[in-house]
Every structure is written in C-alpha cells, then in structure tokens.
Design a protein around this nucleic acid. Structure first.
Length: 867
RNA sequence: GCAGGGGUAGCCAAGUCUGGUCAAAGGCGCCAGGCUUAAGACCUGGUCCCGUUGUGGGUUCGUGGGUUCAAAUCCCACCCCCUGCACCA
C-alpha cells in the first residue's frame, strides 16, 4: 500500500492533523491514552479507530476538531517490567521476541523505566501515525511530567477541600522479600492476588485470646469446641500494648504483616492448650480446646472454631469424639446436618463442604437469630466487632502466589492509606446528574454506569511505589494510576503553552485561573490556556473499552462532577467491545497477538481500520481474521479499479445516481449515532451491489459526482484510499471537502422494479429451460389498487370501489397493510418496452410484453408465460 | 452472592428500542454452473421442509404461556451461556 505512506508524508507536510479553531462549532474527542509497556496489537486499534472516524466525520461537517494523545506511565507495571529485564526474565524475553519481534539488543538496555517508556511510546506513536489517526501530536505529554504532577496535585487539593479525600487502614498484597506491594505483573505466572476478609473471633483463655479465623461467623451459635494442633507451636502476641492474642507460630509468619504494633510475648506448645476451656463471645459459654488433625498450622490462624453441625471438616473430626452437637440452621424447613453430607471418599471432603456451605448460605434459615443465614452473618459479624470480640484477618484467596523474588505473597495492612471517597452520597448524587445529562453509546450500558456509581466505595488512591505524581499530603507516596487519569483531558489544552513556565509556578491559583477564571492571568500564555479551556472544554466524546466502565470511566464522571462546572462536563461516552483473533481472546499464552505494525504492513492501514471498526456492532466483540482482512483488501482494490476507469455517460447513470444519493442522505446520521458498521454496509457493500447491477446494464465508468461523494462519505473510515482517489481524479484533498448534501433526489426509479423482474425471470430460468417468454403486466386497475393501498386507504373502501380487488388483497395478506408502490401502469409498460432489447439479449431468449392473460399478475410481479 | 450482557437457520452474525415489506441482511462453509489445460482466485445461482412452469403450502428465531387482525420483535414465567466485582493497568 505504497500510496498510504506517500499520503502520510503529504498530510504531515500540509499539517492536516493540527487542530485548528475555525468557528464556534467544536468537537473535542479523546480516547484512553495508552500505557506504554509493550507495542500495540490490533486489539488496541479499535477504540482509537472509532475515535478517529468520529474526529474525521466532524471535521468534514465543518467542526473544529481536537483529537489529542498522551501517554500514561503511572504505576508499577513499567517499573516491574524494567526490573524483569534487569533480572533477565526468560518469559518476558520470549514475548518480546516471539510475539513482537523486537531484537534482543534493543530491549535488553531498557532497564531504566524511563527508557522503557520512551521506547514503547515511540513505537506506539509510530503505529498510530501509520494508522492515519488525525491526532494532534503537538499536545502530547507523559504522566511523569513535572507539570502534570502539579496539575494532579491541584486536583487532589480540590478533592481534599470538598472532603472527598480520607485516610484509613487498608489491606494490600505484599511480598516481604521485595518489600513492596505486588500486582499481577509482580508474580510468577501473572496471577492477580485476591484478598479475602475473615472474621477473627476472639476466645478468651488464660493465655490471652485464641483467634479463630472464619468466613461464617454466624455458625458460632453451633460451636462445640476449639481445634488446635498439639504438635505445633503457638505464640502469645500483644497488640497495641493491650490485647493479648494466641495464634499458630507458622500462621503468624504470614499474619504479622497485618498488624502495625505488636510484641511477641512467649511461645507455647500446642499440647499446653489442649483441654483448656475458652469463653465464647456473644454466647458467654465455655467450650474445651481439643487437638484436631484437620487443622493446618500455617493456614488462617492455626486455630479453628469447631461447628460439627455445619462444617463437614469439623463434623468428620468431631465424630471421633462424640456424635452429639447442636444444629442451628434449617434448609427447606428441615434441620441441616453436616453429617448427612460427608462423602464416601474422604478426598472429596473439600468439594462437598463447599457445596454444603453454599446451600446453607443461599437458602439457610438461622434458628437462634430467627432469620436468614445471610442476614444472620451480617448481624453476628457486626455484634462481634461491636463487642470487641473480633478482629479482621485477611488472606490471599487464590493463594499460594509467589512473587517475582520467589517468596509467598502475603497480606499487609497499611494504616496511612489515603482514599478517594466515592461512597459519599452527595457526590454520588451529583455524578448521577452528570450521567443523566450525557449521551452514552451504546445506550444499553447506562444502567451499568448507574450501578457502578451506586456500588463504588472508597478507592485507595496512593501507592508506595511506581512512576507518577507524588501525593500532595504524603510526598512519600505516589498517586495511584486510576486516580491520576480522571481529568487529564483538560491538560491537553495546556501543553502547548507549558514551556513559558517553570513547574513550581503551577500553584493552586495558577490552575484556579485557568479552570475557574479566578484572579488574573500572569502572562499571555496563561491567558491563552484559559482561552483554550473555554473554547474546547467539555469533552464531546470520550472513547474507551467496555471493560473500563466499572472503574476509569466512572471515576472520570465522579471527578468531573466534583471539579468542573456544569458547562464543562463531558457530553458523551462511547465504549466498544474488544477484538478477538479468529474468535478467540488474544493472549500471550495462546501467542495469537498480532502486532499492529505487522498487520498494517501486510494489509494496509485502511483495511485494518475497516476490519476493526466495521465488522460488528460497536458494543460487541469484533472478530479479526486473515480471511476478513483479505476480503476487505480485495474489495478495496476492486473499488479503486472501478473508480479509476473514465466515465462515459450511459442510460443507467441516472438510476445509479438515484440509488447512491438516496443512500448517502442517511450517512451523516449514521455517523452521528456511531453506526459505523451501517455506514460501511451501506456505502461499501450495498452500493457495490448496485454498481454490479449497473455494470450489467451498461455502465461505463462511475459518474464523477458519485465518486466524489463516495470518497467524502467513506473518508472517515478509509482516509488513505479515498484521499488517494480524490487527489488523482479531482486534484484536491478530501480534507478540503465538506460533507454537505443539497442534492434533490428522487424517491423511486422504475429500474428498481425492472431489476426485480429480471431476477424473477432468472429464477424461473434456473428451474426450467425455455426459449420464449411473454411478460404480462398486471391490468391497470391493479395498479390503482396498489396506489390506494400505498395511500393507506381503508380496505373496505377499496373493495367498494373495485369489488374484484377482494381476491387480490386476500392474496397479499399482511403485505396489504404496508405496501408502498409508486409506479403507474404506463410507466412500467413503457420502461419494460424500452429495455426489451437489452433483456432479450441478457437472457438470451425471445421476449415479448403485453397485458396479463391469466389473473395472477401483480403490479410488481408480472406473469411469465413461457414456451 | 451482587451487577451487566446474551441465546436467530450447518457456523459466525444483523434484525428486537420504533410489531406488518422477515423464511429473516451480510459473511463463512457447502452444492451447481461460468472462467481456466487444471487447481486456486474470481463471477453467477442455490442452500429450513414439501411442492413446483416463478408470484404456492408447511414449520422456524432458547423453552412455555399471553397481548394483537399480525410477534424474532411487546408482556409474564422458566432454562442455559458469557463478563465484571476494585485499589490493578
């Protein structure tokens, strides 16, 4: 696709992608900026291409369009990746080499996160340029930029002033060896650690409180005893200089990270605990401590509360001692007894237990509290904490997980964690107001936004490591990456002017002036920033993947509602599904990732654009495959060929024009509704069919007005091909065209009817061979009836006028209600007569026309009498 | 568990908001014909069942009910599948 590269240079030279302010109508469009930790693959292309199509469309209908792009480098994955390169991680190298084809000498130097960022950012930018995206690169920035840091600090200050920033405790996955929090990218096998919260129930004993961790605190009402291991060691720990707890020594190795202030007092042998009696909270009864083989010293706290009635494990163990125990839960009106569910093969105990838990949780009734199990759990939990008889215990639910450094990931609780308080009711209310004022594409997802606004709770907004902005109220921490990317779209409006300032000049009043108009500008650049903001802001269309609704996009709404005045609120959010590769999800392990650059080289940018944007509806996943791309490529080449042939007028031009212009009239609305697939179906596929018919009917070259408008209509989707044709045929670029339609068009053309008749005739010929046919046109009164039906005349009236129409209408059945038939008898007759020679020739048979002889003909279905 | 999306012919996939032109677009696959020495590519036609000299009949859009002159489309109930649930980009 050589012309694509040539055009890129031309566009660059002509400055086609610089955003210019040309009038009052503006369109500010943004797509989620990329995170440069690897090259792009075709999956990334979809969102940007949709955004680009919209940017180009609005430019075509006369808007000033701004479509900027930057790079999000905040967070830990890039840092982790740089570390992995330093460590010589084989797995990572394989991905670089086998999937992306990056030679070793290029990536192995990228051990500094900043170098890594710059390398991949350049790769990505290249790819985006090559795709033809109309991005104004003069506004590019990186989120580790000191100016951007000041901007985010301003944002945090505003949130703080409104009371939306709060501080508290928070559990995180943690690697003691790395001495750092871990995300999926820091683990062996890229596992995302999930944290599970247990209730650690405190049982008073002579040594301190024995802590038993449970997910089912409500079963405490059925407790019989406590399990420990007589062959393991236990520790007495003093928390916060007051509470003494007892936990397993091995368990404590993991648990200790969950406490800030503790002292190890003494070590106990498990057998010392056996036979002691401990006090059960809430019930205020005493139960004994027994040895249990089912207890695993390193799991939980190494101490288990025994509820034989409602745990298969406990039941199994307890049955060695006694078979009498309380049952406190009923399912379907019957007492639920764990012993009934013990499987024959004891290996299946775990699975059976899970099933049993589930059943009791969903449909169980808690007898002592006289309520459902679900409710009893909440009540019991609340009461335990209220009475100080429980502490929170966390564990890795999908563990064990090992960090890059090889140690096991544990849960650490940090107590100086800052949160953005998305649980704030007033804030939620205001965000909903914002949502209500917006267009959501596709509209089906509006409820998802509503629900997310409701469910969102406090969001931890700082991290201890990674690239990014230092947190304003604790400079040792970094603003977490989903929290520093909620209003960055406004920053694009400042970037061209930043070099007139030092970062430290960007204080609170600096931004207050730009975004609120408070105070006076310090210089012209400052004034220009305010001006840019006033002109562009209020993002007209924000593009992103469907998967970001539950976090980024909703944070985006919250923060805009909090920070900006109503006039500057976003106008629309557009989300799209992802790209599948031959029907499968792209993944590193499947190795089915196609790097964008390689795909462009093979098929050309226009083909890829079309493949990712026009193959399915915006909200569903779209499929990419070699076949699809090849098909598009070939069709494109065919169109180029057809359009290049010189046009010599013919009778069919008129019909083709009518078909084309009646189609194109609806194109702008399709774009406005983001129905890009429909645009392509109409212009590319349907029109192509018409073209094929016209060629059969003697078309010689495509009329130039059609080519011109086709180029304009398709330019947003396939800018290279259309601009190439345009420059060649008309000597101007499509960029200089306007999508304006003031062409008077007809509503119908007898050729349409003629085409149908020919097709019917062909069908007939396929089932039978004959050499002569007489076409009998329906009698004129039938045309009259069709017209009356088209005018929605009541059927009774029609029959009153034409009694013989009764049979005809009966035959039409439901169609009678919807018929729309504009043709007159004479018109049809005349048209057929005029095209008789062509038809005879085409069908290679002898054809005559006349009035119908039998009574079966309809105005749109003449009778055929064959010989 | 909570929330969201979805079940359409051999497969993929439109249509559902705004009921009728829907036996249901388009693509793939398959079949026949054309082109070709031939294969591929391409072009034409066919592809639910029956009938057949075309405009005919029957049965379909997860299942079962309902509303309507008319339902893939509206209402109710049920069954099944997929995705997200956070501090991570």
């Amino acid at each position: 696709m050589d012309y694509e590269k040539e055009l890129l240079e031309l566009w660059e030279k002509e400055g086609r992608h610089i955003a210019r302010r040309t009038g009052d109508k503006k369109y500010f469009i943004t797509a989620a900026f990329p995170y440069p930790n690897s090259p792009q693959h075709i999956g990334h292309a979809r969102t940007y291409t949709i955004a680009d199509v919209m940017a180009r469309f609005y430019r075509l209908i006369g808007y000033s369009v701004l479509f900027p792009m930057g790079f999000h480098v905040t967070g830990t994955p890039i840092v982790a990746m740089a570390d992995r390169i330093k460590e010589g991680d084989r797995e990572l190298f394989d991905i670089f080499e086998k999937i992306y084809g990056i030679p070793r000498e290029k990536y192995e130097k990228l051990t500094d996160p900043k170098d890594l960022v710059m390398f991949f950012a350049r790769e990505i930018e290249d790819g985006m340029r090559r795709m033809g995206f109309m991005i104004d690169w003069s506004r590019k920035f990186y989120t580790f930029d000191p100016y951007f840091e000041r901007f985010i600090q301003w944002q945090m200050k505003k949130l703080y002033d409104k009371g939306y920033l709060i501080k508290g405790k928070h559990p995180i996955p943690f690697s003691p060896k790395l001495n750092s929090s871990v995300g999926a990218h820091d683990t062996k096998g890229d596992v995302d650690p999930e944290i599970e919260e247990y209730v650690g129930v405190l049982f008073e004993s002579e040594f301190g409180y024995l802590v038993a961790a449970t997910l089912r605190p409500e079963t405490i009402y059925g407790i019989t005893n406590i399990w420990v291991r007589s062959d393991e060691s236990y520790l007495v720990i003093e928390l916060d200089n007051k509470t003494r707890i007892v936990v397993g020594k091995k368990a404590w190795e993991r648990l200790k990270y969950q406490f800030q202030n503790y002292k190890e007092i003494e070590s106990l042998e498990g057998r010392v605990l056996i036979g002691k009696r401990v006090k059960v909270p809430l019930l205020n009864v005493y139960v004994p401590v027994y040895h249990g083989d089912i207890v695993k010293a390193e799991e939980g706290t190494g101490i288990v509360m025994s509820v034989p009635g409602h745990s298969l494990f406990d039941n199994y163990e307890y049955s060695k001692i006694s078979c009498s125990y309380p049952i406190i839960i009923a399912v379907d009106g019957k007492l639920s007894d764990a012993s009934v569910h013990i499987p024959k093969d004891i290996k299946n105990l775990d699975e059976a237990n899970r099933e049993f838990y589930r059943k009791e949780f969903i449909s169980g009734f808690h007898i002592p509290l006289n309520t459902t199990v679900k409710e009893a759990r909440e009540t019991t939990k609340a009461n335990l904490f209220k009475s100080g008889s429980a502490i929170k215990i966390y564990s890795i639910a999908n563990g064990p997980i090992y960090s890059r450094a090889g140690d096991e990931v544990v849960v650490k609780v940090i107590d100086n964690q800052w949160f953005i308080d998305y649980s704030n009711r007033d804030w939620k209310e205001q965000t909903k107001q914002l949502l209500n004022s917006m267009k959501i594409i596709p509209e089906d997802f509006r409820t998802r936004f509503e629900n997310t606004i409701d469910w969102l709770d406090r969001k931890a907004c700082t991290r201890t490591r990674g690239l990014g902005t230092r947190f304003l109220f604790d400079q040792s921490q970094i603003v977490e990456s989903l929290s520093d990317s909620t209003i960055y779209m406004a920053f694009y409006l400042l970037t061209p002017y930043l070099n007139s300032f030092r970062p430290d000049q960007l204080d609170e009043s600096f931004f207050d002036y730009i975004f609120y108009g408070k105070g006076e500008p310090i210089n012209d650049a400052h004034r220009a920033m305010r001006d840019e903001f006033l002109y562009w802001y209020g993002v007209d269309s924000r593009h992103s993947g469907v998967d970001l609704i539950a976090n980024h996009l909703t944070f985006y709404l919250f923060n805009h509602a909090a920070i900006f005045d109503k006039e500057y609120w976003p106008k629309a959010i557009v989300t799209n599904g992802s790209v599948l590769m031959d029907g499968k999800k792209m993944s590193k392990s499947l190795g089915n990732i196609i790097p964008l650059k390689r795909a462009i080289e093979k098929y050309g940018a226009d083909t890829i654009r079309m493949a990712v944007v026009a193959n399915s509806d915006i909200k569903s996943d779209t499929n990419f495959s070699e076949n699809i791309s090849k098909g598009i490529r070939e069709r494109l080449e065919e169109i180029i060929k057809l359009f290049s042939e010189p046009h010599i007028g013919s009778d069919i031009d008129d019909w083709l024009r009518y078909r084309f212009f009646s189609k194109i009239a609806s194109i702008p609305d399709m774009y406005r509704n983001y129905e890009i697939k429909k645009v392509v179906d109409t212009m590319f596929y349907e029109f192509y069919n018409d073209l094929q018919w016209a060629i059969k009917r003697g078309l010689r070259g495509v009329p130039r007005d059609i080519v011109r408008y086709w180029n304009i209509a398709m330019f947003p989707v396939i800018p290279f091909t259309t601009d190439m044709i345009h420059r060649k045929l008309f000597g101007i670029s499509v960029y200089d065209e306007k999508f304006e339609l003031n062409i008077a068009q007809r509503n119908y053309h007898p050729e349409d009817l003629f085409r149908e008749i020919v097709q019917d005739l062909e069908t007939l010929r396929n089932s039978r061979s004959f050499s002569k046919v007489r076409i009998g046109i329906a009698k004129p009164w039938k045309f009259e009836v069709y017209k009356l039906l088209s005018d929605k005349t009541s059927i009774a009236d029609i029959i009153a006028k034409y009694p013989e129409a009764k049979e005809l209408i009966a035959k039409l059945k439901n169609r009678a209600y919807t018929i729309s038939f504009p043709y007159q008898y004479d018109e049809v007759y005349e048209y057929l007569r005029r095209n008789l020679d062509w038809l005879s020739n085409y069908m290679k048979i002898d054809i005559q026309i006349g009035e119908e002889r039998q009574k079966y003909a309809l105005p749109d279905k003449p009778e055929f009498i064959v010989e």
